[in-house]
Write a protein that binds this DNA or RNA. Structure first.
Lengths: 335, 335
DNA sequence: CTGAAAGCGCTTACAG
DNA sequence: CTGAAAGCGCTTACAG
């Protein structure tokens, strides 16, 4: 696979490589005779020339490559985010290189190093617990970085989040205004601030409320979600609950919980009301339409790319954080 | 963001850049005094040196970048495939750059051009209808390419497929051996050979059978799957079917069909039996466990990377096609 | 209107 | 054991 270069064109056209470069890049300032232009384009066409962006990158110090680090690209939320980022990036001429951190700080660090060696112009990352140092180092060398979905305490990286605590608080208040006997919060055992925000929002609403309602928490690890949720729901909710509400703080948790409800033939919303953070196509197979909190993924992607591109080209300050609003989509699972 | 280079290290260490390069790359042949080695490593460490792979690439003609083109990275099948490819690629030191073609031949072509300009060492592609020419061109310039999931008629690109026709035929035979009154095949209106293979497998089994059973086809476009499947199932299956089998040729179709069953309270397998091609987490919210055909995604990813790496390094012939076997996972949806 | 030349950050055959 | 030098394929200020 021998590719033709600018040099080949120059030789064939009997001009210098500089001229070829000028023509191919359609620079305005330099005026080159229509004749040579035409000849150069024709030759480029016939020898099937494709520019070597690597060579260009070396000179211009821009690769037009963006690194994306998510926890796991096969996770629905992240693959949808990746898709949106891809589209927005492409519009500005960037392509995405992707890595999954598996919630592992060491792997996260390795990926940032790898991407930095590949000279990506910037990175969009969903940082994992324990990766504060890695982010700080990137900030320190002024590497353009934007966080999405998550953020880390004590590190001021520009990024996009949603109003996790607020929306959790508001939806929990809605729940409290109904007269449930019991409300169960199903969340993660985690240190990730954005997930804790959801929990704190829930708790804040509970404390502010005058209702006497039994509150229970189910917290599970990031693995074996289904099994853990099932067994804990069995303890906390039982097989024939009445007048209870379930608050799932992620779509994965919700799916696990809903499958418990299906298996035990528990009726929604007759016996149990359900609200979930995040959506998923999976809800469509549940007999009742699920009330969920919708993240503005497209807007998040758009803002992330904009913020990153701004940093890369020095438009934007590097401590800008953008908070977007999630939205409650009310459906029948809630009574 | 000024990065330090090999030159900086050389200057600081008082040696040549050649020496630094040798040390950092731990070349065996060249023996360099332990003293200078140590000094160079220390300096590299203190000035926080990271190699510029772009520069290396220009010289070595290897970027360690692989292009992945799928129809849509937010599609569950492809994001899972991407994840597996990512892992396998990383083991060989490659990173993945990703693009979604949206089943659009023009966009597919654009992505191959973009990736080729980025000098990816090879591409893993799920070709779209009408992209024969694009693939041929890549083959012609001997660009390392491997197809996954799909293939195209008349183009001999190395690639990985599964035994679509055979597994479809076998599972259909199973269906025919039961005494259903009616069997409905739900598939796509498409020219994509791998999907037609599934349909042909179904039809082959039907023709070979001596049973008299009513056979119906539902073929839908790639968009508005849910609506189309719903309305056509309403016509073909009705609201209270008996002794009927549904054969879905993809997980998306299956989800659309299952949601119809849920909505109309049709019991599986009492009234209707179900078999689906491909799995999805979504099945878990259906009251009955779904019988499905499982693609060996991990093995496909592994073979794809192996095949591509082989081409890149000239181990493998460039017309090798690998066919892996899908497996029927029998569950309760089938009686 | 066009070209010679330097340089981006590396690698590597060659010489000593 | 180490270095000078060429070169990968581009871009771009400068000169003419």
């Amino acid at each position: 696979m021998k590719r033709s270069s600018i040099k080949d064109i120059a030789k064939l056209a009997g001009v210098s490589v500089a001229t070829v470069s000028y023509v191919l890049n359609r620079k305005e300032g330099q005026r080159i005779s229509e004749e040579t232009r035409k000849k150069i384009f024709e030759i480029a066409e016939t020898i099937n020339y494709t520019p070597n962006k690597i060579a260009k990158s070396l000179k211009t110090n821009k690769t037009k490559l963006l690194g994306l680090i998510v926890a796991d690209i096969s996770n629905e939320f992240y693959s949808l985010m990746a898709r949106n980022l891809e589209d927005k990036a492409l519009k500005l001429g960037y392509t995405l290189i992707i890595g999954s951190s598996d919630e592992n700080a060491e792997k996260f660090k390795k990926l940032t190093e790898l991407f930095s060696q590949q000279q990506v112009d910037g990175m969009i990352v969903a940082p994992v617990a324990g990766s504060e140092k890695t982010l700080e180092n990137l900030m320190h060398i002024k590497y353009p970085v934007v966080t999405i979905d998550r953020y880390l305490k004590g590190v001021t990286v520009p990024g996009i989040t949603i109003n996790n605590q607020e929306i959790a608080e508001n939806t929990t208040s809605l729940l409290l205004n109904k007269n449930f006997d019991k409300i169960i919060y199903i969340g993660y055992e985690t240190e990730l601030p954005h997930l804790l925000d959801r929990q704190h929002g829930f708790e804040k609403a509970v404390h502010a409320s005058k209702k006497t309602v039994e509150i229970r928490h189910i917290l599970v690890g990031l693995e074996n979600i289904a099994e853990e949720v099932h067994s804990q729901l069995e303890n906390t909710l039982g097989k024939s609950p009445e007048n209870t509400a379930l608050y799932f703080s992620s779509n994965k948790l919700a799916v696990a919980g809903l499958s418990y409800l299906v298996k035990n033939n528990i009726k929604v919303p007759e016996q149990v009301s359900v609200i979930a953070f995040d959506e998923t196509e999976t809800y469509h197979l549940f007999p009742t339409e699920i009330t969920y909190i919708q993240q503005p993924i497209e807007a998040m992607a758009e803002e992330a790319i904009k913020l990153l591109d701004g940093q890369i080209n020095n438009y934007t300050a590097t401590e800008k954080r953008v908070t977007l609003s999630a939205k409650l989509i009310a459906k029948a699972s809630f009574k």
